[in-house]
Amino acid sequence: MANTNQQKFPDVQGGGSLILAWQIKNKTVLVVGGGEVAAGRILNVLNADANVIVIVSSSLPISRRSLPPTLLPTWSSSPSTTRPPLPRSGKLCKEHHIPANIADVPSECDFYFGSVHRDGPLQIMVSTNGKGPRLAASIRKWIGNQLPAGVGNAIERIGELRVKLRKIVPDPADGPRRMRWMTKVSDAYSWDDMCALTDEDMDNLLIFYPSGKAPELQVLKAMRGGKVPEDLDVFDGSFGFSIGA
């Protein structure tokens, strides 16, 4: 007998990349090369709060101290050296199991730099798996233009609400319930409404967590100034009336 509650997943397509949010804060990233492509790579990793080492010109001496320790034995045996050919640097990374992106050689890349739309905490990456970087940039711009104004600020406010909720309900066992309530809250308000939530509004919103409800925005506004739900004269649709003959 078939399980009618089984979730339907999409068919496996294959040939794609596993797109992840890679946390590289305070990790060391080596960029070999210069020009516009290298500048874009450097900006990407700096935005992720990484420590960047840049090797730019073959005429510029490079101290062994500036290289990752795992590369020192095979890079050069002299106190300083010049930039090795790019294919050699990629080969060294593979030999030492260091993930690498080799510009213009997609087949040698362990990962790709997609075209990224950024709005505060929101990041949307478009990848063509190395087949059409220019097209990825055009698609990214189109997606960015479709998003509502203030979406980054709204996400920031929701993130602050999650932090507040975890402080008052820290037990990991309550995780599923927290997630269900946050989903309900996220679906209850428009982007503009979420951007306009004050710290007081979010504190008042947490009052409704035990009941599992997400109140209408007018209720939160009416609670400003220290009022509690019992003191409000706001119709929330929770009761009705009838007229008898």
Rank of each mutant, 00 (worst) to 15 (best):
Val126Lys: 00
Gly33Ala: 05
Phe235Ser: 14
Ile155Gly: 06
Lys221Arg: 15
Trp191Ala: 11
Ser107Ala: 15
Thr70Glu: 14
Ser242Phe: 13
Pro85Met: 10
Leu92Ala: 11
Ile42Val: 13
Gly225Asn: 02
Gly132Thr: 01
Ala38Lys: 06
Asn145Ile: 01
Leu92Ile: 09
Leu60Ser: 15
Ala245Gly: 13
Lys94Ala: 12
Val219Pro: 02
Leu67Lys: 07
Gln123Ser: 13
Pro215Ala: 07
Ser127Thr: 09
Asp11Tyr: 10
Pro133Glu: 02
Val37Ser: 11
Val219Lys: 06
Ile42His: 02
Ser186Phe: 03
Gly152Pro: 08
Ile168Gln: 15
Leu43Ser: 14
Glu108Tyr: 03
Ser76Leu: 04
Gly240Pro: 03
Glu200Asp: 09
Leu147Lys: 07
Ser89Ala: 15
Arg166Glu: 15
Tyr189Phe: 10
Gly159Lys: 05
Ser115Thr: 02
Thr198Asn: 03
Arg41Met: 09
Asn145Asp: 15
Arg157Leu: 01
Ala21Ile: 02
Leu67Gly: 04
Leu43Thr: 12
Pro99Val: 01
Arg83Asp: 08
Asn101His: 12
Pro176Phe: 04
Gln218Asn: 12
Val228Ser: 11
Asp231Gly: 15
Ile124Pro: 00
His117Gln: 05
Leu205Thr: 01
Pro68Thr: 03
Gly150Tyr: 03
Gly16Met: 07
Asp104Val: 02
Val219Ser: 04
Ser190Asp: 10
Asp187Asn: 14
Arg224Pro: 00
Glu95Trp: 00
Trp75His: 09
Ser57Val: 02
Ser211Lys: 10
Val32Cys: 12
Ala100Lys: 01
Gly130Ser: 06
